[in-house]
Amino acid sequence: MINLRRYTLIRNIILVWMTVVLLAAFLLNIPKINILEHTARNLYFHVPMWFTLMAAVFVSAYHSFQVLRTGEILRDIRALQAARIGAFFGILGLVTGIVWSKFTWYVGTDIWWNFDPRQSMVSLHLLIYGAYFVLRGALDDPTKRARIAAVYNLFAATTTPFLLYVIPRQMESLHPGAEGNPAFSEITHPIMRLVFYPAIIGFIGLFWIMYTQRVRTALLKNRVSHDPEL
């Protein structure tokens, strides 16, 4: 079983870590950047959301694979919870990105949505997880639901990498490192990177806390509803 003391320790470290990151994100002075100015601090929040979504996609796909291999219900619970929290972070990343671009590059225009490759990727992942949740709702038997939902999750995971290749050929990007845009390291001051990288680790850690808590709750719920003695 879980070593509760170690779990609490890791959780507390992540909480302290996130607090320090948040304080540094708002209090540390950052150099003036054209167009962005102080909204550049959004880098610490918007980009880690995307990294967290990717981590969640990997965790969810891995556990879906394990569902097919072993057929354990626990694996299905893990895949589902990773997908749920991934969708949550995806929505946050999408919203922070849309609001950010609206009030910087698109200020004074009516543009809210732009067909930026990364924005399209996130919205696609959200669509897939939406379909995954709908599919789960349409299946009654738990073992069958676990297996078939895992098939859909893995099948979706094989098609999404194509977007990385297809979309950049037809859409322009606001993101650094894309064609014609300066690379990430050129536009960020060292002090920003000092906060940015810990923020990625912190948000992934936050994902881990939420994920493990939700898995435990779901396991307990599962036990209560299936154990006749309780």
């Binding site: 939406g130 379909a131 709908v134 099948f155 098609t159 194509f162």
Partner: peptide, 10 residues
């Protein structure tokens, strides 16, 4: 619902 998200690259 299941099909369209997968077919966007295509």
């Amino acid at each position: 619902v299941l099909l369209f998200p997968l077919l966007i690259p295509l």
